[in-house]
Amino acid sequence: MSDPAIPATPHQVSRAVGHVALGAWSGGRYLHFGEPLDEERLVRLLTPDEGIHTLLTADAYGAGEADRVVARAIAGVPREGVSLIGAVGHDFYEGEREGAKGFPRFTDRRLRGADAYADYLRMATERHLERLGVDQLDVLLLHNPDRTGYTSPVVWEALASLRDDGLTAAIGVAPGPANGFTLDVIACLERFGELMDWAMLILNPFEPWPGELALRTAAAQEVAVIARVADYGGLFWDDVRPGHTFAERDHRLFRPGGWIEAGVDKLERIRPIAARHGLTPMQLAAQWDLAHTPVACVVPTLIQEPGGRPIEEKRAELAATPSQVLLSPEEVEEIRAIGDNAGSMVLKGATPDHDGEIMPDRWPLETDLVAAGARWGIDAERDLAATPQ
Rank of each mutant, 00 (worst) to 15 (best):
L201C: 12
R122T: 12
L369Y: 05
V20N: 01
R68C: 03
I6R: 13
L235S: 11
F192E: 04
E268W: 13
V185E: 01
L45N: 08
E207A: 13
R309C: 03
Y93K: 06
G51N: 03
P352N: 07
A374C: 04
E357W: 07
F254Y: 14
G95F: 00
A374Q: 14
T148L: 10
G278S: 07
L137F: 07
G62W: 02
A296R: 13
A169M: 02
R336C: 01
Q304N: 07
L183R: 09
Y117P: 00
G89W: 00
G133M: 05
T321V: 14
L84I: 00
E40C: 04
P256K: 14
P4V: 05
A372F: 02
L140H: 02
G86C: 05
L22H: 01
E96C: 06
L137D: 05
D368V: 09
A169G: 15
A262F: 04
I202S: 13
P352C: 08
E222N: 15
P388Q: 07
A58Y: 00
K266M: 14
I335A: 00
R241K: 13
Q221S: 13
A5S: 14
R249Q: 01
D340L: 09
G258H: 08
V223M: 09
A169K: 10
T107Q: 11
M1H: 11
L167V: 09
R271F: 04
G233S: 13
R315M: 12
H354Q: 05
S26D: 08
V346E: 15
G211E: 08
A71R: 15
A75V: 04
H90F: 10
L141C: 05
V173L: 15
L142V: 06
P364A: 06
S161C: 06
D135A: 12
E207R: 13
E126K: 13
I52P: 08
F206R: 09
A158F: 00
S328K: 03
L22T: 00
V264E: 14
E305M: 15
A218N: 08
V229S: 14
M359N: 10
E312F: 11
W376L: 05
P175M: 08
